[in-house]
Every structure is written in C-alpha cells, then in structure tokens.
C-alpha cells in the first residue's frame, strides 16, 4: 500500500500566543519561535506507520511518502517525519505563507497523478491557520471519498478499504471508504488502540501519542530519498482564491481575583457578575 501524508511546518504550537503582528498589521512575526510539524500531521504520519506495520509478506510493497509545500527550511520537518519512519520525502518549494488551501490541494492532486497512492492521510487542520479545508478540497478535486476527523481506523488485512470512526457533533459516525480514499485525522487517532490493521499482533499496544524520531532514526532519515520540486515543475496553478488583508490582536482577557472561600465565590457570581 502506498500512502501520501502531506505535512506542514508551523511555529511551535505551544507558543501560539507568542506570534507577533507587524506594526502595519500586514505581517506575522515568528522571531524566536521554533518550527515544528503541524501536530495533526505528525498524527497522520503515525497513523500511516501503524497502518502499514506488519502488513503483508512483502513489506517493500508498502510506502509512506511525506510531502510538504514550503520553503527550504521545511526540509527539517520532512526529515523529522522520515526519522519517525516514513520512507520517502518530497519538498515542493513555495512560501507557505502565500498559499491558500486551494493551491496546496492542487499541488497534492498533481502528485497523486504521478504517484497513484491508495490512501492520503492528512491532519484535520493546521494549528497555525486553523482552517480545516485542504483535505476536503483535495478529496473533492480528486473525486475521492473523504473520511474526515478520524478518531479510529480499522483496515481489513488486504488493505482495500478503511472503516473510520469520525468524531462529529453529537457522537461518533462510522463510515467505510474504499481505496483510493482520503482520511483526515483528529487527535484521538494516536491513542494506543485507535489504529487496527488486523495484522499487528493484538497484544502489541502502541504507545500513546505520535512516536518521536530516535537518534538512529535521524541518522537513517538522512539517507532516505528526498525529492525537491517546485510548483512550476508540477504545473500547479498558483492563483489564490483567498487574500489576506490584515492581522490584528483579539481583545485579551486578563486575570481577575483569587477568592478565599466558596461562599465568597457564590456571592460574587450572584451579586457582582449576576451569572448565577
């Protein structure tokens, strides 16, 4: 099985409150922030690795390809995913601040023509833009089924389809998609039993979360194939459909008061705030 996992670099998600805005409101400033793979994309890589693990006699038939559209610096995040265990990387050069979801989807659609994967695994959203669009746009472009917000995935041993439990409002919906298909993953996908390929021994529990790249993994990653392409090479139409006009800071909340007793709290909620 061949899986493509599109990944994006984002400024350290734990420091999202440290992103600054230029005085004219036209630019974001990331000074002093580290870049990381988008957490949901790490989860997608983890999911891909769990799906192909122990599957089939011929492991060489399985391939997990990570691809990022971004500047040269995004090589680090592609390498990180290779170090996690992905087999092959691609970096399509482009300024990731100048892309909208449509351009990203178009670029990946071109790669799909080239690579004919069985499955595309993506994050449900990037935690920088929080837009949650690219997967659904890409699936629409390809005419593929989309199982969005996956919290659990089970595949039959022949890897021809996936049964996906989707985290949706009001509960969980389960769908089966026939490959080729696109799945976007939610946070629960990296809990220990969320991915079942009916192949890995049942007693073999995955650890919680996406795996870390190990030191030997990092050494190996440097020898794995990493192809560099441009949007032009792929013939991608780079016209955007959404234009950023400006950035601003939302009104901040500030800390209030610490109360000593529960009586005081109830009194404040009733008489001062009038919310009880």
């Amino acid at each position: 099985m061949k899986i493509i996992v599109p990944i994006k670099r984002v400024p350290d998600p734990e420091k999202a409150d440290k992103v600054r805005i230029s005085e004219d409101g036209k630019q974001l400033i990331f000074d002093g922030l580290d870049w990381k793979p988008n957490p949901f994309d790490e989860y997608a890589v983890e999911t891909a690795l769990r799906l192909v693990k122990d599957s089939g006699a011929d492991q060489t038939a399985n391939e997990v390809i990570v691809v990022s559209i971004g500047p040269e610096e995004a090589t680090h995040q592609v390498l990180w995913c290779l170090a996690m265990g992905a087999d092959r990387g691609m970096l399509i050069s482009g300024d990731d601040r100048e892309l909208d979801a449509t351009v990203v989807a178009r670029a990946i659609a071109k790669l799909v023509k080239k690579e004919s994967p069985d499955l595309i695994l993506m994050g449900k959203q990037t935690v920088d833009g929080d837009s949650n669009q690219t997967a659904q746009m890409l699936a629409g472009m390809l005419g593929w089924p989309q199982a969005t917000f996956a919290g659990r995935i089970e595949t039959p041993a022949d890897l021809s389809s996936a049964t996906v439990t989707r985290e949706v409002d009001g509960g969980s919906a389960t769908v089966t998609v026939k490959f080729p298909a696109l799945i976007s993953v939610d946070v629960r996908i990296v809990t220990p039993q969320a991915v079942n390929n009916n192949m890995s021994p049942p007693d073999e529990l995955n650890r919680d979360g996406a795996r870390f790249a190990s030191l030997p993994g990092i050494m190996k990653a440097k020898k794995k194939p990493l192809e560099r392409l441009t949007l032009e090479d792929l013939g991608v139409d780079t016209s955007q459909r959404v234009k950023t006009i400006s950035y601003s800071r939302p009104a901040a909340r500030s800390g209030g008061i610490i109360l000593e007793t529960v009586e005081e709290l109830v009194q404040k909620l009733k008489e001062e705030a009038r919310v009880l």
Partner: peptide, 22 residues
C-alpha cells in the same frame, strides 16, 4: 459544525470558490 466543516470545503472546490472558515 462538523457537517459544515466536512461539506463546505468540498463544495467550495466544486464551485471553484474561495472559502473562509470559522
């Protein structure tokens, strides 16, 4: 909603429209 998030980007794509989320 989760339905809006699932459906509208795919719709935007088929209408060749740009989209703003949330």
């Amino acid at each position: 909603s989760s339905i809006g998030k699932d459906v509208l980007p795919r719709l935007a794509q088929s209408l060749k429209a740009g989209m703003a989320s949330d």
